[in-house]
Amino acid sequence: MHIVVCVKQVPDTKIIKINPKTNTLDRRSAPAILNPYDAHAVQEAVKIKKMLGKGIISVLSMGPPQATAVIKKSIEIGADRGFLISDRAFAGADTLATSYALSKALERISKENPVDLIICGKHAIDGDTGQVGPGIARRLDIPPVTNVIEVSELNESESTVLLKRKITSGYELIQAQVPCLLTVEKEINSIEYSPMPNMIKAARYEPVIWSVNDLEDVDRTQLGLKGSPTIVGKMFTPPKPEGGKRLEGNADEQVKQLMELLSDKKELFAPQ
């Protein structure tokens, strides 16, 4: 079983700061981390490999050279090897161009060692789109199953896998044919504290870095900024009601005022 996990380096949005004057990201304030959902994706691959008692886990990322850090982090969690595609040609890609570039890299990885399962995080915390995973699946013409919360019964002879997919009202039990692509929720597993030998392995590991020239049959017009149909028109600070106001009067009066303030939000309330 060959599992490829797609991972992304993202700024830690929990503590990110936006420069209020320029509406740009204060990079110094935002350390780069492995997208938390992707960490769960790697962990799930490790779990599956353990379950089967064999297999190989590759990780794939796209980004600047320093994004090798997230590949090393994945090795710490238990991946076997990692590839980074890094080239100016990929820069400025939206989700469509990203899924194109990654699918090209996956084709190359698959050529050497056919891929059975691709796992992605549900979405990246910097973009929150969740579009790249399904996009890759479409390009490789394999079925995607998004929002997966459990992987079980990997049947190698039948080439099927049993999945639980989270939906609003509960979950679906899905049988999918392998190869397929999964995107996983955080609740699928908990990240284990990596063992020391993995740490040492990761510290030594040199990820494979591919430029656009290392990929085959690439249509360059589909890459990077050129290949991205969407552009950011403008950035602005979200319109947020001004804080710090106190309601006046006695308890009854305050409650009444609050009810009035909430009157235009009534569709948010639904008794259970």
Binding site: Y193, S194, P195, M196, P197, M199, I200
Partner: peptide
């Protein structure tokens, strides 16, 4: 001894 599993070096 580190705080990691298999953590002795």
């Amino acid at each position: 001894r580190t705080d990691r599993p298999g953590g002795d070096v």
